[in-house]
Design a protein around this nucleic acid. Sequence first.
DNA 1: TAACTATTCAAGCAATTAGTTGAATAGTTG
DNA 2: CAACTATTCAACTAATTGCTTGAATAGTTA
Lengths: 219, 219
Amino acid sequence: MTSPKSQLFEKFADLARVLGHAHRLELLEHASQGERSVERLAQLAGLSVANASQHLRHLHSGGFVQSRRDGNRVLYRLGDGPILELLSALRCYAERSRAEVREIVADHFAQLDRLEPVSREELLGRLQDSSVILLDVRPKDEFALGHLPGALNMPLNELERRLSELPKDQEIIAYCRGPYCILSFEAVATLRANGYKIRRLEDGFPEWKAAGLPVEAAA
Amino acid sequence: MTSPKSQLFEKFADLARVLGHAHRLELLEHASQGERSVERLAQLAGLSVANASQHLRHLHSGGFVQSRRDGNRVLYRLGDGPILELLSALRCYAERSRAEVREIVADHFAQLDRLEPVSREELLGRLQDSSVILLDVRPKDEFALGHLPGALNMPLNELERRLSELPKDQEIIAYCRGPYCILSFEAVATLRANGYKIRRLEDGFPEWKAAGLPVEAAA
DNA sequence: TAACTATTCAAGCAATTAGTTGAATAGTTG
DNA sequence: CAACTATTCAACTAATTGCTTGAATAGTTA
């Protein structure tokens, strides 16, 4: 009865089902920034620790995260394989074919078009002539776990009070956790309002790292 | 409480959950061959009509299939957007990262390596010098709904008795429903056993069509 | 070893989902 | 219109999933 094809469909369905919960997608996004304890992930996703632990075990069973023990805590990180590609295909389908999704994006990330995001390829070129300032607007601890080479870390909540550290005559490129992370959108809005030349990277740190591009960790 | 990002995660999760059932993945594969009635899809997937109808409504709610009424039946077909790309990303992740999946593939599609599948690009080139026979081993009715230009239809169950129609001195390329459809694997096995030069296309009809390549329908 | 922290496990309840059955609906045909 | 076909809907049961709570486990520290 269970033909090999049905068995494969079962396996594929199991994996899809693991991705079929908003909390797990959010935990996955946070884990893909770098290694994180269960408690921290729970906090970031607004879940109880036990609940986060359960969802993380689900993700683990599908190979989407890996874990290791460090002292009395367990650290989760993104798993192996083309996970970000799979998530990107999901986003891509949703954005192109589902009107509700396009609506949410249009309502809340309305500047999308006007911001003219920068692709990874373009950024790579620009970094070599060092004609840009690269700005990482994620929280300090995520920055410490890894960031783009030469990036300046200025978490969103510190941005306004540290404006003077940024030059107005050079282009700034901001990035954060990924394509739908609002941090870099808000950074762009704030800085543009203050007369800076700023654009955002079209995706975030995990995608950069997964593309095999160079990454720096905290000193 | 429902930030735009959470809303998006909810939508993405909804879509993933629709793909999170083996029966739906199977129905989707069949619907992507061409328009099919509920009854036929139910039969192909081995489900009751009511059950198939329910799963199809799920797929419909996620936009993975579209439907239209034709007389007293309702025909379902593949929906718009990069659906096959999403499914391919899922397969790709599963195959690269999940050992159980690799095992099933290795056990049941063991010839995979030895068969040296032909890519779409290679096939396109070969078709122009007409140096190959193109063989569609899907059932007659699926062939009638659409097939690769110039393909010869020989359903698997007719293959052995119609061997004489095929030349032994020309290379044959077989294709079927998609990358894990066993039809073309079995065709290759049968024909090789009989001394034919045959290889298989690496994916199937739906992927060919989705790539925007030319397709023929029944006369 | 005792007290402590971080995580997982187990039990239980509520909510959701899968499947069956039979009735309702839309359309066709005599 | 009546009889018929194909599909969907509604009601129901069984199974699964999500979440909470409290206990168990692994590791640290006094």
